[in-house]
């Protein structure tokens, strides 16, 4: 029993060691997003609280904590309260399998990539529950839009993951990173990387695919009835999901914790820094897209997902597998 508790304590310590930095970086990333967005539009962005406005997110969080939480009288109260909790939890538990370096991962499970995919496909429930439980028109429309959108784009993300897995021969995320030692998958699978990036935008409801919360039509989509800390939890969960998608892109295509070139000054930098650097790079791309591209129409969004991305990525699966078969490069024989 004693050893059981010691294992429990070390695990809890490890989880805290991972989650606290993730939460802090989510707060920082919100600031970064707003800054990049502002610079593209020739504004200053948040620059008042702290140096360069770094503590803006802290000030926002403080404001949210002291705001009143209003639960609509006609809402389904249990589900209404549960929805932001589900969103936040699902956004955080997926970080368990992201490898930050060799032997520097919380749970090195065999089916890591399936776990990531499963958890990100569960993310739709937070939104559906929030939209339905609010018992109001705009949130419900937003939730329905979001559910259809996320289910559609998950399909193409799944097929893209199959492309990467064909080259690796394992579902373990550390194996996926180690398979990219000689060549990052972004080079042979570049079209898949582009489609993954765009699908990740749709999966996380980011502009130009932010139809679930299109403020011109739906007020704030599924978040309309939420206030105070519950709204902040939706918002943090959303940004944690965006960071997670960036991490997934970095692990699948940009070589995870590996350094770009395997020579002295670069390979001496510890792995986590490379991973964080790659995640930040992808995130800045996310922010730039938000700043430059206008919103899609809903039928265009569905057309892009089902009629263009899905056939193209299926075609690429055939291409990748026949290439690997022809040149006898199939892994795991």
């Amino acid at each position: 029993m004693d050893s059981y508790f010691s294992i429990l304590f070390t695990e809890v310590y490890k989880i805290l060691f991972l989650l606290v930095p993730v939460l802090v970086s989510v707060a920082m990333i919100v600031w970064l997003d707003r800054r990049v967005w502002a610079f593209v539009q020739k504004r200053r962005g948040p620059n008042v609280v702290g140096p360069f406005g770094l503590f803006q997110s802290l000030a926002d969080a403080l404001k949210y904590i002291f705001k009143e939480i209003i639960i609509p009288a006609s809402s389904n109260k249990f589900v209404f309260v549960l929805a932001p909790v589900v969103t936040m939890t699902l956004a955080l538990i997926s970080w368990a399998v992201i490898p930050f370096g060799e032997d520097f991962v919380l749970a090195d499970i065999n089916v890591g990539i399936l776990y990531l995919f499963a958890v990100s496909s569960l993310g739709v429930y937070g939104i559906i529950m929030g939209g339905w439980a609010s018992n109001s028109k705009y949130p419900f429309l937003g939730a329905i839009r979001s559910a259809a959108q996320m289910v559609s784009y998950e399909v193409s993300i799944g097929v893209i993951i199959i492309n990467v897995l064909l080259c690796v021969g394992s579902l373990n995320l550390s194996d996926i990173v180690m398979a990219q030692q000689n060549l990052w998958f972004v080079i042979p699978l570049f079209p898949m990387f582009v489609i993954f990036f765009i699908s990740a935008l749709a999966e996380t409801n980011r502009p130009p695919f932010d139809l679930p919360e299109a403020e011109a039509e739906l007020v704030a989509g599924y978040q309309t009835e939420y206030s105070g800390m519950m709204y902040a939890m939706f918002w943090l969960g959303e940004y944690a999901n965006i960071l997670l998608m960036c991490a997934m892109g970095a692990v699948l295509f940009l070589g995870g914790w590996l350094s770009p070139i395997d020579i002295f000054p670069f390979n001496d930098i510890p792995g986590p820094f490379w991973l964080i650097f790659k995640i930040l790079f992808l995130f800045i791309l996310f922010a730039l897209v938000k700043a430059t591209v206008p919103r899609y129409r809903y039928d265009q969004l569905m057309k892009l997902g089902w009629k263009i991305f899905l056939p193209f990525s299926l075609f690429y699966v055939v291409l990748t597998s026949s290439f690997l078969l022809y040149f006898d490069l199939l892994p795991g024989k």
């Binding site: 499970i109 065999n110 995919f117 739709v124 329905i144 289910v151």
Partner: peptide, 24 residues
């Protein structure tokens, strides 16, 4: 673990969403 994850992806991630859709 493979069956468990596929169960999550297929049934929870896709089938149950459509169930919810229809019911709602």
């Amino acid at each position: 673990e493979f069956l468990g994850m596929i169960m999550l992806i297929v049934y929870v991630g896709a089938v149950a969403v459509l169930f919810l859709f229809v019911v709602m």
